[in-house]
Design a protein around this nucleic acid. Structure first.
Length: 276
DNA sequence: CATACGTCCTGCCAGC
DNA sequence: TGCTGGCAGGACGTAT
């Protein structure tokens, strides 16, 4: 997805227009993005009033007046396009679900690859759902000590660990790679050999990268758009991700690309020494 | 329990 | 010009 900064940007945009408004009807154009029987999904929503739009990890979370929730995981190419005030979301290229509002607006879930998933969570099941995810990296309670404890329990490559949503919620490949570049840690380093000082650097780097990306409205590589249909501006600020064969801005050494865990990692072979 | 890998799906781009 | 292979922000299920 769209990682934490992109979900945050989308949620903020929708939070400014949706609370107080009511769903009139739901049209499902693509059954496979909905969790459970599509008919039940579409039938459950009409009449519910939005109370809040927020985020948990990479998920955009809509909370209704009765405490039930609609959770949207955007997969690789999901977008939530707001036509809440214009009546229709114009930029949808692959609409999958329309949420028609009682006052005439419409919010569209759009997804080229359809890896995204829309799930309804009853009020009573929210705690359990949320508990499956790790801590929020931007929360005050996510300290360097918390990160150190997580790292110490795993021999997996640190990049893989950062991507594990049960360990830390919201970090994806772009920001994991960027944070490791800032912290000068090789992506394949076994998590439990990272020392206290390096852990402190990584902790600071993860939070800094996520905050800066939120400030820039996220990163658009291809598909990502915020709720208003705009691209994110953080792409220009990437130092390692997607920059194979370009000079590291710290030391001019060529950035390298390696693949493990089925995904690309980018790093500076000089600044980020290989583990041994 | 932890870790590794294949799979879902479509579109784009480089190279031949 | 057209085809093929590789690659893409994620996460789930299964095997080991």
């Amino acid at each position: 997805m769209p990682e934490l900064p992109e979900a945050e940007t989308i949620a903020r945009g929708l939070h400014s227009v949706l609370p107080g408004r009511v769903i009139a009807s739901v049209t499902i154009l693509r059954d496979d993005v909905v969790k459970g029987p599509p008919r039940g999904f579409a039938a459950a929503l009409p009449g519910r009033q939005f109370r809040d739009v927020g985020r948990r990890g990479k998920n955009v979370v809509f909370t209704f007046e009765d405490g039930s929730r609609l959770v949207i995981n955007l997969g690789m190419t999901g977008r939530i396009l707001s036509g809440a005030n214009s009546g229709q979301a114009r930029r949808a290229t692959h609409p999958a679900v329309h949420f028609h509002l009682a006052d005439g607006g419409c919010v569209t879930y759009d997804d080229v690859r359809r890896f995204g998933l829309l799930t309804l969570i009853p009020r009573a099941r929210w705690r359990d759902w949320s508990r499956r995810l790790g801590p929020e990296p931007l929360a005050r309670s996510f300290t360097a000590r918390v990160l150190r404890k997580t790292l110490s329990r795993s021999r997996a490559p640190v990049r893989s660990l950062l991507l594990d949503q049960r360990k830390i919620a919201g970090v994806g490949n772009i920001y994991a790679v960027e944070a490791l570049w800032f912290a000068r840690i090789h992506p394949a380093t076994p998590a439990n050999v990272i020392g206290e000082r390096a852990t402190a650097r990584l902790h600071r780097s993860v939070r800094r990268v996520l905050r800066r990306a939120i400030r820039a409205g996220g990163t658009t590589l291809r598909n990502y758009r915020n709720a208003e249909g705009d691209v994110g501006r953080f792409g220009r600020a990437l130092h390692a991700y997607g920059r194979a064969d370009e000079p590291c801005v710290r030391c001019r050494t060529s950035i390298e690309r390696i693949v493990f865990g089925g995904r690309s990692a980018f790093f500076c072979p000089r600044c980020q020494a290989a583990p041994r």
